[in-house]
Structure formats: structure tokens, C-alpha cells
Amino acid sequence: MSNENRIDTYRRKLLGGGAALVAGVTIAPGVILNTVAQAAKPGDRPLDRPVDDSVRWGLLVDANKCDGCEKCVTACHETHGVKSHGRPETDAQWIRVVKLRDRKTGYEQQLPVMCQHCKHPPCVDVCPTGASMKRADGIVLVDKHICIGCRYCMMACPYKARSFIHESLEGEQLPHAPRGKGTVESCTMCVYRVDNGQQPACVEACAAEHGEEGKALIFGDLKDPNSEISQQLKKYGGKQIRADLKLDTGVRYQGI
């Protein structure tokens, strides 16, 4: 049994216990767990503590390694129960592969584009109810409970990252990917998986397809200089899509 798993067991014990137990032990383990949470891996935060800004989750896309296989797209849409209704113009897409071509030289490349999880997200600025929101750890989400479906965020997003749900989905949803008619949605950076110590589905699928060396997607904490993503960015640099807008995106690209 690895330490990691034992910690999990411990936490389950703690969280799963009756109310009296929780009340009795909150203070001491709370303090200890807080120190544990400084490490920069998904799932390090105990799930009874709020997210904070000690981490900023990010993605790194290496366009040179992306072959457009769309495994990331499939994985994402399977994970979240996003299905086509046979109407491409109204079907939701959380992540898509964009093909680029330089008109003059004919140079072609492709890369996945999803919500860029901006530090200054225009969708959050314009949302009238505050349904468009940014978590303390940098993940941009839609609180569908208070989304009224005005679609102003879709007008404001520079990345075309958002989709409106144009039809009833009752009965089609998966337990950890709530989504429904009349609300707007986009990539959640697999917030549920990340909170539970997993990588986003697209990242996992990319590595499974192309191996550690060939993978085009890296997930990690942009604030931790030792994380794989930060190391890569330090070594090879990274660009933002529409960097001119100065939105400070959480998704970075190499090879564009």
C-alpha cells in the first residue's frame, strides 16, 4: 500500500465518519492536511477544504507532437457524456482539433483548442448572474444552477470555447458531468477528476495513445516551478492563443 493510498484511506475515514467524529477532529488534521495541500499534484487537497490560489492548474499543448488523432476529443466527450444529436451547428463541443494552414508557405499543423481558462476571463466579466466563474485554482466553470442561458459569455469568449445546450438531455447525463438544456457549458479542465487526484481525460488519453515521449498534452500546476508543465515551459517556452488580449490563459501552446 503506497503512502498516497493510505492517506486516501485516512481521509475517507475522516470524511466518512459521523458528525461527532468530524467535529472532534476537524482542527488538528485540518492543520496538518493544509501543509500536505501545498504539494502541486491534483488530488492533494483534502476534499473538505476549499480550493485556494496556491495552485493554478494549466495545460500545455505541444502542437509539434499533435497528429490530430482526436483521441483527446473522444475521451473528453465520453467522460462528460457529450454526444452529437446529428446537428453539427448546435451540437456541443468542449474540445476540438483546429487545423491551421499558412496561406503563403502552405505549412500545416493541428492542435486541440478548448476553454483556455484565462486569468482574466471575458466570459466571467460579462456574465450577468455570476454563473460564469473562475475557481481560486484558475479553473473557469459555469455554475449551471444560476445560468439563465443568455449566451453573452459565448459572445464574449475569444476562443469559441463555449456551447449552448440546444436540446433536452434528461436521462443522458453521467453522474459527475451534469449538463442540461438551456445552459452554457465548456471544458471544465475535468474539475471533478482533478479534485479526485486524476489528470484531465484528454491528457490521459493523449499519453495513452502516444506514450510519455510522444504525448502532446501536459497537465499541471503553473505555480509550482518543479511541475512537469512549468519545467517544460521554462525549457522550451510557450505561447498563448490571442496573447494580444492579455487574458493570461491557463492553456499554453508550443510550436505555434
Binding site: N3, E4, R6, I7, R12, K13, L14, A28, L33, V36
Partner: peptide, 18 residues
């Protein structure tokens, strides 16, 4: 998954080890 009882010393050690 009912907790077996109050946190033991072992539990705390586990966390500190991590």
C-alpha cells in the same frame, strides 16, 4: 466506510510521513 473510531496516533503519523 464508518470510521473505526477517533483518529489514532498511527493515522496522524501517516499524514506526517506523507
Amino acid at each position: 466506510n464508518k470510521a473505526a473510531g477517533p483518529l489514532s496516533k498511527g493515522d496522524l503519523e501517516l499524514v506526517s510521513a506523507e
